[in-house]
Amino acid sequence: MLRRVPFHARNGFTTIEALIAAVVFLVGLVGLLGALVQARSATGQARRLMQATDIANDLAEQIQLWDFTDQRLGASDPLCADDPLDKDHKLLDPTSGDYDTYLECMHGEETIMMLGPEKFGGLRTPSFTDESGVETKFSRFYIVRLQDVRLGVRRMQIWVKVLYTEAGEQRVVTTQAMRIQMGGV
């Protein structure tokens, strides 16, 4: 007569339990990978914004070094000088009719390098390449508004704008500087 050995539960996982655990792990891993991709994208956006801000600050610092009577500091067209912050967002829509008009009323690369690259101590080529080899080109512009405050005092307000394209959309960074001339107006 055959004797049956009683069944004892063994420690460990069954195949079904192991498969369920693997599926749960993979679902969590997919969610983590999605978060990593978003974080990388956000880091790239932040890097380009910082680069644009650095370029704007570099140009503003260079303009501060120019003599008050430097020919590159001529007053801008009233279209730009009256709306230096571009409150209507003309620069964000390259397809609008105002885009080109607004660009033309600002001082650009031609004016910046008017005296030759050797006379400009700042960043000469405003473009950067990231670690994956993608190059971002930045365009620099500035607006100058001159005002006689009172007899012998002249104020120069300067708005520096840096344009770049990210994910097919136009982006603009603006910084401002001010200079005062006293006495020799």
Rank of each mutant, 00 (worst) to 15 (best):
S41Y: 08
I158F: 01
L33H: 15
C105F: 04
G34D: 08
F25G: 14
V172N: 02
G31N: 13
V5I: 14
L26D: 05
Q51M: 08
G34S: 07
G168F: 01
H89V: 03
G168N: 03
L115H: 13
L26G: 08
N11L: 11
E17A: 12
D98P: 03
N57Y: 12
E169A: 10
R40A: 13
E166I: 00
R48Y: 00
D58C: 11
A177R: 01
L103F: 06
L91S: 01
Q147D: 12
A21I: 10
Y142M: 01
E17L: 09
R48L: 00
R72K: 10
R150F: 10
V37W: 13
L151S: 15
E104P: 04
Q71T: 13
Q181H: 15
L163H: 01
D88M: 09
T165Q: 08
L65P: 06
L79W: 04
P6L: 14
K161V: 06
M106C: 07
R3D: 08
H8R: 15
S132W: 05
V5Y: 12
G152R: 02
A9W: 08
I112A: 00
I16F: 09
G122H: 02
R47V: 07
R140N: 03
I16G: 10
V153A: 09
T165K: 06
G183M: 11
I158T: 03
E135V: 04
A81M: 05
Y164Q: 01
E61L: 05
R40Y: 06
D58V: 03
T136I: 00
R155E: 11
I180E: 10
T174N: 06
D70P: 01
Q147Y: 11
Q170S: 13
R40M: 07
H89L: 06
L19V: 08
D67C: 10
E166D: 11
A167Q: 05
S132K: 03
G28D: 05
E109H: 12
K90S: 07
Y142S: 02
Q38W: 14
T53L: 04
K119Q: 12
A42Y: 08
T95S: 11
T129E: 07
L91E: 00
F7S: 15
M113A: 07
D88C: 05
L73P: 02
A46V: 02
L151V: 15
R124E: 02
G108F: 09
C105S: 04
T174E: 04
W159D: 00
L49H: 07
D58N: 06
Q38P: 09
H89Y: 10
D130H: 02
N57F: 13
V134C: 07
F138Q: 00
R10E: 11
A167P: 02
A18P: 03
F128K: 01
S41H: 09
I158P: 00
R145A: 07
G28R: 11
M50N: 11
L49W: 03
D54L: 11
L115Y: 09
L19M: 10
V160Y: 01
A22C: 13
D86N: 03
D77E: 05
R155S: 10
D77A: 08
G152Y: 10
H8E: 13
V24G: 11
L33M: 15
L91A: 01
A18E: 09
L2T: 14
A42S: 13
C105V: 07
V5T: 15
F120S: 02
S96P: 01
G28Y: 03
Q170P: 04
K119R: 15
